[in-house]
């Protein structure tokens, strides 16, 4: 994993106090949509997504000095965003104490206010993803939607490639079953 040209430019801008704000704008304009959709697929609600998106970029702004440039900026942002999502999901679990209730709430939300017309299959597919265990859901989302290589997912989730492949395989099987049965 190496830093590409645009990442270098963003980092140069961010590390200079005089151009830090400009660097932040460039970084956000480059990655905000990609990171938004990653968060949205995990937490479903737009309000939560907005909060986490802001938190992600604010943390990036604050801790840019500790970013060593060995990975790409978006991988680093994915990692921050994923950690924030996991924290939110775990807090929700603590509060609700019932994952089924939570999934049902998300499913209902997904199939009413947020659904665009003619997207029934996509809604079903999204419901299947929401029913996956946390780890499988994260791996599947990063691999399937964001098309990230396993090495980068390893960096984001701090797990081995073999564990990721296993989780992805189980996630695929469960989604297939859900789509066929419902």
């Amino acid at each position: 994993m190496t830093t590409d040209r645009s990442d270098e430019q963003i980092l140069l801008l961010l590390r200079e106090p005089a151009t830090k704000e400009k660097g932040f704008r460039v970084m956000m304009d480059t990655y905000k949509e990609r990171i938004y959709w990653h968060i949205r697929r995990l937490v479903v609600l737009h309000e939560d997504t907005e909060d986490i998106l802001q938190e992600t970029f604010i943390n990036a702004y604050r801790f840019i000095g500790s970013f060593n440039g060995k990975s790409k900026i978006y991988t680093w942002l994915y990692r921050i965003a994923t950690n924030e999502c996991i924290r939110l999901l775990r807090n929700r679990k603590k509060m609700k104490q019932n994952i089924e209730e939570l999934t049902a709430k998300h499913t209902l939300k997904l199939s009413t206010t947020d659904m665009e017309s003619g997207d029934e299959i996509l809604v079903k597919f999204q419901n299947a993803i929401l029913r996956l265990p946390e780890k499988q859901r994260l791996v599947f989302t990063l691999r399937y939607y964001d098309d990230l290589p396993y090495e980068e997912i390893c960096y984001i989730l701090k797990t081995s490639v073999n564990a990721l492949k296993t989780n992805y395989h189980y996630a695929q099987e469960k989604i297939k079953q859900h789509m066929l049965n419902s």
């Binding site: 704000e21 932040f24 704008r25 956000m28 304009d29 905000k32 907005e50 998106l53 802001q54 970029f57 604010i58 702004y61 604050r62």
Partner: peptide, 9 residues
């Protein structure tokens, strides 16, 4: 969202 986040930061 960019300006909003920058102001917050």
């Amino acid at each position: 969202i960019t300006e909003k986040t920058l102001n917050e930061a």
